[in-house]
Simulated assay, not measured.
Amino acid sequence: MWVRHENRSTECRVPITPRDARVLVQHGLRLTVEESPQRVFPLTDYVDAGCATAPTGSWTGAPDDAYIIGLKELPSEPARLRHRHIYFGHAYKGQPDALPLLHRLADGGGTLLDLEHLTDERGARRAAFGYWAGYAGAALAVLHWWGRLTGPLEPLSRDELDARLHEVRDADAAGQGVSAVVIGALGRSGRGACDALEAAGVTPTRWDVAETRNLDRETLLAHDIVVNAVLTTRPVPPFLAADHLKADRRLSVICDVTCDVGSELNVLPFNDAATDWLRPVRSLQIGNRPLDVIAIDNLPSLLPTEASDDFSAALIAHLLALGDTDPVWARCREAFTTTLATYRNHPPADGGETFLKRGTAHV
């Protein structure tokens, strides 16, 4: 296994912590960890755990049988990908970068084991960052509502973030209470969002399947903040579209934790672009007043230690079974091979639109 440096400068998390790397090494696995200036854990911790080290970006020369493990997108080179890659590829739901990635894998004979599809038989993820995505996203939303969020963002510990949320809670002594609703409140991300809002002194309205089945948009628009934590794998009617956002709404801040921007599964289709650490908030002029949107696709990296600890602890059992017949990896492989077959049978001659619709339908 080869843990690569993350190409994105704001990605501080790791898929495998030094603590769990030690366990893998003790089970006889060879683990190589690349140098990385932004990783939350120092390279010396991996050396102490028995890992080999390698220069930044040297995974391209790793042995053919290595599993290349990361979290976010690969660099644009090499043009052909020959290894087995484990990371969040986001290549099966019609995302804008799906076609180039599948093309590189098809040309190089590589494989994508997308961590988004590391699921049990019910489709629930076996290792996920959802709780910390929800926590960070809701925290940013309430801090922004109070005028206390500025970019660029920087990684924090939970204690540091909570201290900022407690300042907001204490500032609300005058009774200017923030009204917030979390959609998908019973899931991992939703639970994290609710906990962050509670830390800020905000008692959230909690919506889940029952409430989204017959969505009351008037009630949704009557809140100051909406946090979307719903992950859908099939097209559904949008929760809010541009024509729903009338001028007399109370709603002024949305945090889209799910961040399916560019996908036909986007339940907030009025937002067509992600935000980032440099500019975490995007102000959209809809109707007669602005709507501020936070849509950062690596929110858990704001809390890299806590997020990495939880994710690695869940992933390690499956990494130990990677060469066996673990059904969760079998589902990952099936998702990839089916999508790749769709790609090969329906090449993107029309710019990819037909392929993306076919590919999305299968998953």
Rank of each mutant, 00 (worst) to 15 (best):
G351E: 06
L112V: 11
S179A: 06
L315P: 10
D248S: 12
N7L: 10
P300Q: 07
V226L: 13
A180M: 07
A49I: 03
C51W: 09
P42R: 03
D45S: 12
D20W: 09
L221P: 05
T203G: 07
Y343W: 11
T233H: 06
L153A: 11
G184Q: 11
G123H: 04
G287M: 09
R13W: 01
C332V: 00
R164A: 09
D260E: 04
L291A: 12
N266P: 07
S301C: 03
A196I: 05
A79C: 06
D114F: 00
C332L: 02
A274L: 04
P75I: 13
Y343P: 08
D170N: 09
N228T: 02
T111F: 02
H83N: 10
V227S: 06
C51V: 12
Y135G: 11
L320W: 01
A242S: 03
A247R: 09
I183A: 15
E353M: 13
Q95K: 07
A127W: 05
A127G: 07
H223C: 14
D64K: 04
R282Q: 08
D170L: 05
A222H: 14
A106T: 10
G134Q: 02
A341F: 03
D114Y: 02
P280L: 05
A361K: 15
A313E: 15
H244P: 00
W329K: 00
T219C: 04
P327F: 03
D208G: 00
S252C: 12
A341S: 08
E77R: 13
A139T: 05
D272G: 14
G94W: 13
G89E: 00
Q95G: 04
G130F: 09
R22T: 09
L113V: 01
D326G: 03
Y87L: 15
G175N: 07
H346M: 08
A21E: 11
R213W: 06
G177Q: 12
G108E: 00
H85V: 01
T233P: 00
P235S: 07
P63F: 07
E6W: 03
P235F: 04
D170W: 08
D224T: 10
H244K: 01
P348E: 14
A139I: 02
F239S: 05
S157I: 04
L43F: 01
V168H: 10
F336C: 11
E306W: 02
L302G: 04
G201E: 07
P269G: 14
A180N: 09
D260R: 09
L291W: 10
N345H: 15
L71K: 03
H244I: 02
E211T: 02
R164M: 04
L340D: 04
V202S: 15
F355D: 01
E334M: 02
P37Y: 14
P300A: 14
V281K: 05
N266S: 08
L319P: 12
P78C: 11
T342L: 13
Y343A: 14
A229H: 06
G70R: 00
W207D: 05
